[in-house]
Design a protein around this nucleic acid. Structure first.
Lengths: 250, 250
DNA sequence: GCCGTGTCTTGAACGTGTTCAAAAATCTTT
DNA sequence: AAAGATTTTTGAACACGTTCAAGACACGGC
């Protein structure tokens, strides 16, 4: 009554289909859930589902944002409370795995298409830019809100969120393959790797290793420069972050 | 005449189907090549293709081994010639990208299913163990055949090939997404990252950082211990290597 | 030679994701 | 309110990966 408009009929239908789909994905898995089943359960026709979603895979894009919001909500209080970089990053990463856990059964598809350059789910695809941006913004807050003993060098700072984002993708990749009870292995990995990362940031901030750090950063910049312009959006810091996946391995 | 048996009729048919399939994949891409088209071009029935290959994806498993053999052939002379760790690793990685390059168009599917825990293409799946083993064996040779100034610590040595294998997977992941002309970006990344890795191995071998190195190795061991037994094969050093993806990120 | 047992081959049929022209519902304009 | 335009909805149709029962073939034992 009092509220101005409320969600339009169209939006309602769209939400209905999406909710039905995500629920069925969670229960039965992605491959096992057919578009016909989704449509039937949602009480719409098959074609109607395709009117709102370009493909079955496109539904997952929304799922990404969904889990991202859940992550932010779970990580929020931690960032309020914790002030050291280590505690903040650890809290954020734990929150990530916590919120993701319920979807573990259907997580396969997540990375399945995510690694395909042609897929819209690919984290480097234009369609994923919003989600990716929000995600790195979160890690930026994790870093900038921290009171570290060593001052993080100015040249490292802008790349750090990107690097941590890549790190967090690595953790998710590990988590997807983690079949241990309660994802114990992933949690163990998170605890330790966060500690190691913070130590490495410390080391990288020492004047002593400044040359090596500069080398790595220069490499990232060069890779970035070679990348063809991605979208006609603002020029994006898209693919350089991947370098970190391969760069250090000890 | 002189040769004892030659390939049986069955093997010939199988090879015919596979060759036809791989050729069509290379030309048209994976998704665009239908099983019906493969069967028709190979001059067999649709069902016959399925007699030899459990699924379309299973054909790629053979492709893996195929490219691996090509890689070995290309890397062989380099290992003969080069004696420093850096030159050996660089040569091997260059050979990898060189031999892979022709398949770039159809590489998407490679990682698409490769990252899916349910897929047989997943590098950690039982079906991939042979390929993976051969691949790490190669990197073991790269390392062991090298004359480095610093002696690599005994505790690091056995893990090194696994870690480098993970690194090389990271490079492939990057390569798949690399759309620059002639894969310039990938080659640039390889040049620099190999250099960095060798430096890091050097650093990790210093007594000074022994504690940190031991920490990382201990983490790998613990993760490995938590992993449930994979196959009823010999107990495998399967999933710990992933840790390196996430472990260091600076 | 013939029979039987295994290997190989076939094509029709199923269920899937996706497309599309047309119908229905809704909104806009007169 | 009628007419037109736009948005939403429908279900039939398509192409694909995959399965399967049944047929064709090869070969060793009688």
């Amino acid at each position: 009554m009092a509220d101005v408009t409320g969600p339009s009929k169209s939006e309602q239908t769209r939400a209905l289909i999406l909710d039905t789909a995500l629920a069925m994905f969670r229960e039965r898995g992605f491959e096992e859930t057919t578009m016909r089943a989704i449509a039937e359960k949602a009480g719409v026709s098959l074609g109607n589902a395709y009117y709102y979603f370009k493909s079955k895979e496109h539904m997952i894009q929304e799922f990404y944002m969904h889990t991202h919001v859940e992550h932010l909500e779970a990580a929020g209080p931690v960032l309020e409370r914790e002030k050291t970089l280590k505690a903040r990053l650890l809290g954020s990463m734990r929150a990530k795995v916590d919120t993701l856990e319920q979807y573990h059964a259907f997580a396969g598809i997540l990375f399945k298409s995510a690694a395909d350059p042609k897929s819209p789910l690919n984290p480097f695809s234009p369609e994923s830019i919003p989600t990716r941006k929000e995600s790195t913004a979160h890690f930026d807050e994790v870093v900038r809100g921290a009171k570290t003993k060593l001052r993080i060098p100015a040249d490292l700072m802008p790349e750090l969120a990107n690097l941590i984002w890549v790190y967090h993708m690595g953790i998710i990749l590990f988590w997807i393959h983690d079949k241990s009870a309660g994802c114990k292995r992933t949690y163990l990995l998170v605890e330790h790797s966060v500690d190691i990362i913070v130590k490495l940031i410390g080391i990288a901030s020492l004047p002593l290793v400044s040359p090596l750090r500069k080398r790595v950063l220069k490499l990232l910049a060069e890779l970035n420069a070679l990348a063809e312009p991605q979208v006609e959006n603002e020029s994006e810091t898209k693919p350089e972050a991947e370098a970190a996946v391969s760069g250090p391995a000890v």
